[in-house]
Amino acid sequence: MIKAEWFYWLVGALFMVLAVQMAADRTNPKRYGTAAFWGLLGAGFVYSSWVVDKSAPAEPLGAAVLVMICLAAFGFTGRGKARTTTTEERRASARKHGSKLFLPALTIPAVALVCAVLVPKLSFGGGPLLQKGSETILGLGIGAIVALVLAMVMLREKSVAAPLHAGRSMLESMGWAMLLPQLLATLGTIFAVSGVGKQVGILTEAVLPHDSVITAVVVYCVGMFLFTVIMGNGFAAFPVMTAAVGWPVLIEQAHGNAPAVLAIGMLCGFCGTLVTPMAANFNVVPAALLELKDQYGPIKAQLPTAVVLLGCNIVIMSAFAF
């Protein structure tokens, strides 16, 4: 059986190999700091396997994360000059290869699709071929490897250094944004164990009017939205808002339809995810990947949609759930 952890080791190894390249890159004025950041990230990926199954302490990993934060936040990381092709060379190559170039890029989703849909039905030596529940993640990894081999054969690229180099300059241009989503997930956990959720619940109950269903719907929906903006995802907001308003007021007092109230409540949280930099993997990482000058560009594009949809949710819940 292919395990998800093996794939995390591969990602960790990739980070570490790139870190070695970075340390040797004389065009990067801060090469040692940069190499330390990505090297620690890679080592953390591997070490995490034992943290997850509780056979190693989490504290050293936590300390490494704090070191990474300091390296990135206090300007010890930088980027080298990318040795890459010029626009003219790219245009010439595009003319030469034509739409064949899409083939490897489309291989990634195609393999992911096969792994998610077909492979779970196969068995290998009495067990599933891919670890259960991780099929799509593993599919992405297998797809990336197949695509890489295909691209190298197709483009007659003999050296593995070329794709590594290309990947490295993309990583260097993203910089600290890479670590942010994982760090925010951590913050969510810390908020939860420190009782931030409970406090917000108490606050919400204090401002909650007990007379009209419509106001309670608005409090639940807007509360989910705002709480998600603060926490970065609806998963942390949902139990708190549902315990404070959703269940006791909307479902028990007002006899709302439970699936409707809860499903739409969660979707109000998703509207919040569209507008918060705390949801870095959806909003900040794409901005870095697309090399936008304004890191809030995607959020600005999503804000009107999010607000209108929040309104839609309030209307749908008021109209159909009671």
């Binding site: 989490a58 936590g62 300390a63 760090l183 951590t186 956990t189």
Partner: peptide, 9 residues
């Protein structure tokens, strides 16, 4: 520290 480590992992 452990929370940072667990969160990352």
């Amino acid at each position: 520290l452990a929370a940072f480590g667990d969160g990352f992992a």
